[in-house]
Amino acid sequence: KLPPGWEKRMFRSNGTVYYFNHITNASQFERPSG
């Protein structure tokens, strides 16, 4: 389970998975720990 605010997303163009935090508007490719 991801830390609060984080969700898994995917770029439609190339299928790359990334993680987005809707609380802080942060995004990263590494899976957030917590």
Score class of each variant (00 low, 15 high):
6 W>M: 01
9 R>F: 08
25 N>F: 10
1 K>T: 13
13 S>W: 13
6 W>E: 01
8 K>E: 12
22 H>F: 14
31 R>H: 11
12 R>M: 13
2 L>V: 07
16 T>P: 09
15 G>S: 07
3 P>N: 00
25 N>Q: 13
29 F>S: 06
11 F>R: 09
23 I>L: 10
22 H>Y: 15
1 K>Y: 12
12 R>D: 15
31 R>K: 08
34 G>C: 06
8 K>S: 06
26 A>P: 02
15 G>Y: 04
33 S>R: 13
23 I>N: 07
24 T>S: 05
5 G>M: 02
28 Q>P: 02
6 W>K: 01
13 S>N: 11
12 R>I: 13
7 E>A: 08
30 E>Y: 05
2 L>Y: 03
6 W>L: 01
29 F>L: 11
9 R>A: 02
1 K>R: 12
16 T>S: 14
5 G>Q: 02
7 E>P: 02
18 Y>N: 00
14 N>F: 03
24 T>W: 10
3 P>R: 01
2 L>G: 05
31 R>F: 14
32 P>A: 02
19 Y>M: 01
15 G>D: 05
27 S>Q: 08
5 G>A: 03
23 I>S: 04
16 T>R: 14
30 E>M: 05
5 G>I: 02
7 E>M: 07
7 E>L: 09
14 N>I: 06
3 P>Y: 02
22 H>P: 08
2 L>H: 00
13 S>I: 11
7 E>T: 11
13 S>T: 13
1 K>E: 15
7 E>R: 08
20 F>W: 10
6 W>R: 01
1 K>W: 13
28 Q>R: 04
1 K>I: 12
11 F>M: 13
13 S>V: 11
24 T>F: 06
9 R>W: 03
23 I>E: 12
32 P>T: 01
16 T>K: 15
29 F>P: 05
16 T>A: 14
28 Q>W: 06
16 T>E: 12
30 E>V: 06
19 Y>A: 00
24 T>M: 01
8 K>D: 03
14 N>T: 14
24 T>L: 04
13 S>Y: 09
2 L>K: 15
22 H>M: 13
11 F>W: 10
1 K>M: 10
14 N>Y: 09
17 V>A: 09
5 G>C: 10
29 F>D: 06
2 L>R: 03
34 G>L: 12
15 G>I: 04
30 E>H: 08
13 S>H: 12
8 K>R: 13
21 N>P: 00
1 K>V: 13
4 P>K: 07
13 S>P: 11
15 G>N: 09
33 S>W: 12
23 I>G: 03
16 T>G: 09
16 T>N: 10
7 E>N: 04
34 G>A: 12
9 R>M: 09
20 F>M: 01
19 Y>Q: 01
23 I>F: 13
4 P>V: 08
5 G>R: 02
